[in-house]
């Protein structure tokens, strides 16, 4: 554990809770892509199946349980409890376009040809692109609420901070995980455009709007 990874994890947890709190307090899932949230739930379930057979630390276990439960709760709120407020008409990204390539990539790039390793690789690739339905939705509606922007910023920062963590780990322990690093870089690049809008608009007190 180093400071970059800790900050990354804090940012990740923050993102998850910002989203849950926003939906819960406003009693509305407007502007949130249920499809992205389903993809994230698949990501956590596929990656954290090792909860049952490998113990790394109490910290890891608690975080894994937290991500699985929070993402399931988010999906429940969007599709069941506040279904009436969910903006399904604008949430039209075809998730098979990310699910199938992630699965194919997992079969090509993995650390061993076992079910759990393939699931792990799949989850890493899927995580990199899981936000696309949400970004697509923001582009389609042309704007995002400030809380949604904060959520996206925290979620994007998490993988960016992980990149710093990987650089640090490479130099201090020689640790290098090519699959996670490549996917993490792609993931961070996908947020770059959003980061720019966030800094130039939301932080200046304006609403995030995407020009056509």
């Amino acid at each position: 554990m180093n400071l970059f990874r800790l900050m990354g994890d804090v940012s990740h947890v923050l993102a998850v809770f910002i989203l849950l709190a926003k939906i819960w307090r406003t009693r509305s899932a407007a502007g949130i892509s249920g499809r992205s949230q389903i993809l994230f739930t698949i990501v956590y379930l596929a990656r954290y199946m090792d909860l049952f057979f490998s113990f790394i630390s109490l910290y890891n276990t608690v975080m894994k349980l937290l991500f699985i439960s929070a993402s399931c709760a988010t999906v429940y709120l969007i599709y069941f409890k506040f279904r009436a407020t969910y903006d399904g008409n604008h949430d039209t990204f075809r998730i098979e376009f990310v699910l199938v390539p992630s699965l194919l990539l997992a079969f090509i790039f993995h650390y061993s040809m076992s079910f759990f390793e393939l699931a792990w690789s799949f989850s890493i690739f899927l995580e990199a692109v899981a936000i696309l339905p949400q970004l697509f939705m923001v582009t389609k509606t042309g704007e995002a609420e400030n809380i949604t922007s904060h959520y996206l910023f925290a979620l994007g920062s998490y993988r960016a901070l992980y990149i710093l963590n990987w650089i640090y780990r490479y130099y201090t322990e020689g640790h290098f995980d090519p699959i996670a690093v490549c996917a993490g870089i792609v993931q961070t690049i996908l947020y770059c455009d959003f980061f720019y809008l966030y800094v130039t608009k939301v932080l200046q007190g304006r609403k995030l709007q995407v020009l056509p």
Binding site: N60, Y111, S112
Partner: peptide, 10 residues
Amino acid sequence: FWRTALHDEL
């Protein structure tokens, strides 16, 4: 063994 050693991140 290396699986847990490798996937120690979230």
